[in-house]
Amino acid sequence: MIVNNPEKIKLIKDNLVYMEDIVVKFGKVVALNGVNFRVGKNEVVGLLGDNGAGKSTLIKSLNGYHRISAGNIYFDGKHADFTSPKDARDAGIETAYQDLALVNLMSISRNFFLGRELQRNFLFMKLLDMRRMDEIAARSLKEVGLRNIRAMHETVNFLSGGERQAIAIGRANFFGAKLLILDEPTAALSVTETEWVLRLVKEAKESGLAVILISHNAYEVFGVADRFVVLQHGENYADIKKEETNPEELIEVIAGRIKK
């Protein structure tokens, strides 16, 4: 991919994520129809929109889960040819999915390290280093504030919604991600757990990460995000800096009653 427009080169270099004219189709359904999206370095972007607007599809096309039908994706200054979520994780994108976060019947530490298991040599074999994985998972989860921490061999089935998000966030910290994507992390959480997760988003920003936070709750995102991107029917609808708006107005924009 050769880009020779100097303005565009600057945009690609200045942003962590730069996506242009993204099209994603599922059979005949056009989920994304030419969407542009960018995330600055160390920026927290609130990604908003009604049900079915295409938020999840957009982040899944960024992290290699979906193949895009058209458009370009640049990550960290380079054209991103992620053919699988593994490529995206290796490049530094950690995602907490709305629907695919964890394997319920597997243990906390196995989930924490899934796809990136630590190994040790034993005779001629490479075996899982369960002890180290347990230790690291326990430490990382403690750091993100997982209270009354459980045995790492417990299945994640027993965890609350907030604790599940904490695994994804702890994972991003430990593996040194550059971008953390949270898809409706607070959808099923209690008030205290919501506050906890939002605080973790702030901490992630303080530690240098960029964050994409998907949510339906304008008040929630408003507290932590620097900028808001609103999608509607798979197209860009609004892109507003925090200074230029307020939660009440944001709700009107998401609902499609105001266009900014």
Partner: peptide, 9 residues
């Protein structure tokens, strides 16, 4: 969970 497995690569 095949979807989760795919999502972690």
């Amino acid at each position: 969970n095949a979807g989760t497995a795919k999502a972690v690569g």
